[in-house]
Design a protein around this nucleic acid. Sequence first.
RNA 1: GCGGUCGUAGUUAAGUUGGUUAUAACGCCGGCCUGUCAAGCCGGAGGCCGCCGGUUCAAGUCCGGUCGACCGCGCCA
Length: 581
Amino acid sequence: MLRTHTCGELSLKDLGMEVAICGWITRKREFGPILFLIVSDRYGMTQVVVNDASLVEKAKKFSIEDVVLVKGQVIDRKENRTDKYPTGEIEVDAGSLDVLNSSRPMPYDHNKEASDTVKMKYRYLDIRKSLIRENLIARSKITGLVRCCLEKSGFIEIETPVLNKSTPEGARDFLVPSRIWKGSFYALPQSPQVFKQLLMVAGMDRYYQIVKCFRDEDFRSDRQPEFTQIDIEMSFVEEDDVMNEAENMIKKVFEGMKKDVVLPEKFPRISYDEAMERFGTDAPDTRYGMELIALDDIFKKSSFKAFADAANDSSKTVKGVVVENKAKEFSRNIIKKMEVAVQGDGAKGLAFIKKIDSSLESPLLKFFNEKELAGLSEIIPENGVLFIVADSRPIALRSMGNFRKRMANELKLVDKDVVAPLWVVEFPAFELDEEEDRWIATHHPFTDFDIDGLKDDPAKIRSRAYDMVINGHEVGGGSIRIHDVEKQKKVFSILGISEDEAEEKFGFLLESLQFGAPPHGGIAFGLDRLVMVLLGIDAIRDVIAFPKTTSASCLMSSAPSMVKKEQLEELGIKLTGKKEE
RNA sequence: GCGGUCGUAGUUAAGUUGGUUAUAACGCCGGCCUGUCAAGCCGGAGGCCGCCGGUUCAAGUCCGGUCGACCGCGCCA
């Protein structure tokens, strides 16, 4: 090693010691015959004082971010101590200074806000100089805890292929052309789903993998084209077994990362229907109240037509949210802005009723009879506001669910110190794709479900799936799988996948189910999102070392890029819609 | 695929109803300075105003298109 210590560890206990430290010059302050350098690495920063005249001359030529090796004695800063950084009580009195490598001026100022564009282009500098470094260190600790916990529980990590077969359903695949089989393509895995099931047939019993997955869709602040899953599968299990194992793991990870946080002994469970009714989302954040209120009963006979229509039509609903202590504060203007936001979710309008000095106030008041007014008065507390959306069920639920979330953020109702995990269960197994008029699998087509007595209405079937939600983020999801070949074939037929297609795409899976496939199930966690939740970060980019932009390009390497004609010819590929160069 | 915000020195921004040589701070280069803590002081260099086209006597500014970044909708079994 070139160094004896890192830049973060020297202190008064090392006084007098001859040390060697390496790092990047982050500050240089000259005073004629004396000069200070701040040398940093990922452990911290240490001040170097240069007194020797020839060394000062040498150091004057150093640039910010030059990599240096400093040898010298640890001395007390005495009256010049600082508490601005942990090593502020000492400094290294330079005996020798060497530049191991020089640096060009930094392309942007790390101490100020910079555009994402320039930071992404010089990602390695952003990692060196920003909190992203800490996030990556935390991420490593998290995967370490996961591995440790799963290995202790008898899971074995097995790698599955990255070059895969393209499957129908689900997200768009990233394709990789085959040189040997011209005209054929591999697909990068959207998840190792089928392979982990085959490992169960193989008798591997308890498998896990921390693995990259790829989906070629459009991206957001919490979505990247390649992301990482903690993938888990177990044999001879039912829902509770997988959920207990998963809960145990998550608790270990949180305990290892946040010592002061206590997670509930058992994570609460709520059904998909209940989550939608109470929170307007299948990933509820239960750190705050303001749950959705069903108002259909109150308005069934209302003379306000929009409410009465929605209350009496089973495909529609009237939903409300009470915001406390704001009746006097919310002006018409503020409420108008809220309405615009709600309309952004497709709702036709946002009604409101205030209670001030025990009496109700609202432009709609004249439409309500005494029974309705009494019902409303019971719901709305003094100085509270009831917001109402009457619309089709999905729109009313979604818009009020989002309204609740926005309101909680704006009113700062979210307690950042609380961790609220829960399970969402009893998902519908199938939902109707209205555009294509066919059934699609809500989870994925290998999810087991209770088929008895519901042969004719797929909408009523509940699947054996479960999602883990923490603070309103879906961090993981899984299910008990189908291990009976006939049942699996039936699902494909419900989904409109023909027998031929099923054979072609999933033949190897269907075949494996006929060789003693054990009952099995599992779960997969989105590692990036889990890290985000643990660190309280909003952007997935900040927990990934080298992320892509929202249009899936890498500003550092300029991927994706065009390739030589010869490369394409070798693959038997001819371009049709190439963009102008 | 759709919508919103943004794009001006290396960086972050300002730039009026269109009108002289496009400002500032930080950074960079040169000089001064014996204890700094984002050190300070003096001086200097640095611009395809994202790109293409249009309107105009005149465009950083107005209009159209395009590219890119970010945020959201659709999408993401």
